[in-house]
Design a protein around this nucleic acid. Structure first.
Lengths: 138, 138
DNA sequence: TTCGATACGCACCAAAAGGAGAGTGTCGGC
DNA sequence: GCCGACACTCTCCTTTTGGTGCGTATCGAA
């Protein structure tokens, strides 16, 4: 918080010509990015994009390696941000469906480039990491 | 770990026709994604893409709200993953330059869609969040 | 009658993320 | 002679992330 205020103060000092509106928008964009650029969010987004409507346990199984706690949290945040719709069927045993909204589908499409990048360059990243480790050690 | 092994076992059971190679690749891709889909990494990537070569303090100022500790860590990880090149000029006071590699520039381009999404839809996200809060409280 | 299935909530705990502030080393300017 | 500049590192602290395991409600099946 202190750091943010300091940064704000610094920005204020040296950005007299930049309109103050962009600052508020940028802050919002950053906030949205920070919540959306999350490992689990990306994985759940992918799962829902690929499989359409999913139930809680099913979603967890497809994502893989996620605990119930994190799955609940991630889905709740996505629901709150308007990325998924949660539909409760009041039957027994309980039945809850999760589906992407249009907003969620748009975000999934936006992340597509990152997935492609990772698929294309993961070998290069591995190589860079090996080279770095050898440089440090050798 | 247990959850992962369970998921693996489940996957194995129901994916006899899927080649096992894709599993290793997917694991790598996920690992890369998890490290790259980070708030600070995205912000530093943006700063370097927009401003070209940057020095340490300069980079921190442009990103805004990042502590030295996190800036150091983020830049080191990006260097390790082959996203930036760190050039030390042995002068006094010290002078260190950070520049994106081709890999980094590609990733930055890949993230472009997410930035555009955030800029386009941040108002919708805010609205969804307000609606959610009212639903919960009211 | 007890068990399993579903979609969680809650409590407890470990690890990681992240911030604040102090220290470092050397030089040139005041 | 002391301060500031730069690019950090180190320590201490709080907050967040994430995992594990237990509890819950209800019904139908064994």
């Amino acid at each position: 918080m202190h750091a943010i205020r300091e940064a704000m103060a610094t920005m204020h000092k040296r950005s007299e010509e930049i309109p103050p509106v962009s600052k508020a928008v940028e802050s919002l964009v950053r906030q949205v990015i920070a919540q959306v650029a999350d490992k689990w969010t990306m994985l759940v987004l992918e799962a829902l994009e690929e499989h359409g409507t999913l139930r809680f346990t099913e979603c967890g199984r497809i994502v893989g390696g996620i605990s119930q706690k994190m799955l609940t949290k991630t889905l709740r945040e996505m629901e709150r941000d308007g990325l998924v719709i949660r539909t409760v069927h009041p039957v027994i045993p309980p039945h809850v469906d999760y589906t992407l909204t249009e907003l969620g589908r748009e975000l999934s499409a936006a992340f597509c480039g990152v997935w492609t990048w990772a698929e294309t360059y993961h070998a290069e990243v591995s190589a860079a990491r090996r080279a770095f480790r050898e440089r440090e050690e050798g």
